[in-house]
Nucleic acid binder design. Structure first.
Lengths: 347, 347
DNA sequence: ATCTAGCACTCATGAACGAAGAGTGCCAGA
DNA sequence: TCTGGCACTCTTCGTTCATGAGTGCTAGAT
């Protein structure tokens, strides 16, 4: 973006993009002056268009077909032209109501929020569960299922519940398990899972621990129980994509859905989003996974008491009504954060 | 099926259906004699075809387009003509390996099995979690999260773990909770959830219970904890459907995917399947939900120690290689059952 | 200098047409 | 009872052609 664009260029670029967002069609000079009330002739518009194409903000699918915004064009639009809508009060209430709905566990809250978001924006909604490592320990409990089988249940500060089945060699009585969990709950209260795990390693090496059978067992159990199995993503509303004209082509659609099924790509994308501030918009080729070429991703982080936990957002075609989608994603994330803080604050 | 079909009719019907399964195209008389080694002229085949059409087993999309099997045709084929393949040893091992894979919780086992099945048959895989009501109680545990918040964790005989967040009015100490869960674990051991719930209602009304605060609390808690919130279905491999030529038409595809998202229709379908014996095949209009018109569903029940728990299966176009798909669904279900019995038998 | 009107040119889209080919039904003869 | 043959039906596919949206360029107006 070497030279700043003239006012005229900006107005026209904006008009073109908004027209294209509305119609999904390439927009031509005549149609543009006709539809929007520009005080210009189509010829002048054409000149400007040529200029914008020169700059790489527009492109024409073929000679006689009007212009379409490029990824760069959308980027410019989002950064410099876009005026984000104020959120409709009704929409806010809807999101709020869905989140508040019942006494929800964290996973359910996220799923619910995701579902509402997706159906409000009419695109596919994504939400990642918090990475365990970054969350804060709250409580752990062991249930003896059999002589070699233990169920570990542990809960994070933010209210995430995790079950894990653990196979062990030697038997442990219910009493043993109770002692172990009591000990762990005291020791690890308020630590991040990561801290807890390293802390355990340290404790394990200490002299007195070496000779205490039960302590050793406690450490081993918690080590497996707190092991992160790699995060998860909820996806909601994939069917919305099927009604977008840009997704008519099947092989492309198929690749996209396969990516959805594997989840790890999406997890990566959401995870990356945790770095920055506020809403993050990735447009087309800015997403570095070619399986999801031509899509835009809008994400925002949600956070608990101790900072960011995860991210949620939506994915759709480049041609998205950013002005309305961005605030919805933002609001949903903040709503989720608020709910999470509330539950953990009840302590 | 008033008059039984002649041998010739049967051979030709079979040939037509298999040809159509292979090519996805309407099959004509000439093509049929050419491809399969029938000792007949195309004219004779035509006569037979006309007859089969008369009987409603075939239909022609239009005058000059060959014949396509009807739902009734497929039904006849599945019931009387189909010779099911013997399962490839390699395939069996693959399914087995995936299920055995790690120390899996029930939900994970089902998810894993479903994924493998789906990718083996190349259609969409479905599996329902057991309906709580029909499962057997094994263990319950309450964790105090805050003055008004309790997490109930309970486990069924088959290894299904359920968490539920419960809001309460008055505070209960960790000790109280321990007593409550001890009591419940003793009382309800080995009962079905349904039996347990009614049993609790009976106990609650007894005289001594009326004056025992803690008992009352125990009953209330367990009542909410054991409440079935309605079952769940895992869906895997929806992208496979996108490569089927019969799903090229978007609106239809969209309806289908929406149905997948809502889940309750699928849950119904799988639930129904629990009645009968063995593998259940539903073809086209036999599925009574018009949102999924033109699909076939192949399901089989999986069971634990105490009888059927749930069902799994696959959904795809009518035109499916039943001969190979049916045994895979069957084997997967039996594999899952075996794994479930094993875990609960370790007790 | 800047904008506009006009013009020639390009190219996708869609209708119309026709040939090709696949398939059918029916009849007459083996 | 089967088969070969024949007339007929329809879809499919390629071709052609007209239409119209859109462009770039240039000359003239402001």
């Amino acid at each position: 973006m070497a030279e700043p664009l003239s006012d005229r260029c900006r107005t026209i670029l904006e008009a073109i993009i908004e027209e294209h967002i509305a119609t999904a069609q390439p927009v031509g000079s005549k149609a543009l002056v006709g539809r929007c009330g520009l005080n210009l002739s189509s010829a002048s518009v054409r000149n400007v268009m040529a200029e914008l194409e020169e700059l790489g903000l527009l492109q024409s699918p073929h000679t006689s077909a009007g212009r379409v915004p490029t990824d760069k064009g959308y980027r410019y639009y989002v950064e410099r032209l876009l005026r984000v809508d104020r959120l409709n009060r009704k929409t806010e209430e809807q999101i709020e109501a869905q989140c508040r709905h019942r006494s929800l566990q964290m996973a359910e809250l996220l799923r619910q929020a995701n579902r509402t978001l997706s159906s409000l924006v009419n695109y596919t909604g994504l939400v990642m569960l918090p990475r365990l490592q970054s969350t804060v320990f709250r409580h752990i409990e062991f249930v003896r299922l059999g002589p070699h089988q233990i169920l570990a249940v542990f809960i994070t500060q933010s209210g995430l519940v995790q079950n894990k089945l653990i196979q062990i060699e030697e038997d442990l009585s219910a009493r043993d398990l109770e002692q172990i969990s009591n000990y762990l709950n005291q020791t690890m209260a308020g630590m991040s899972i990561q801290a807890a795990r390293t802390n355990i390693l340290v404790e394990m090496a200490k002299e007195k621990a070496l000779y205490d059978q039960l302590l050793q067992r406690a450490f081993q159990l918690s080590q497996t129980a707190l092991n992160d199995d790699g995060g998860d993503v909820f996806i909601e509303g994939t069917s919305h994509l099927l009604e977008q004209p840009e997704f008519l082509d099947m092989p492309r659609m198929k690749r996209l859905f396969q990516t959805f099924e594997q989840k790890h790509t999406l997890l990566n994308l959401l995870d990356q989003g945790l770095q920055g501030q506020g809403v993050r918009v990735l447009i087309g080729s800015e997403i570095e996974h070619q399986e999801i070429a031509g899509c835009s991703l809008i994400t925002a982080a949600y956070s608990g008491r101790n900072g960011k936990l995860g991210a949620l957002g939506i994915i759709g075609p480049n041609r998205m009504p950013y002005a309305s989608v961005i605030p919805m994603v933002e609001f949903t994330a903040s709503m989720v954060s608020r709910m999470l803080n509330r539950t953990s604050a009840e302590e």
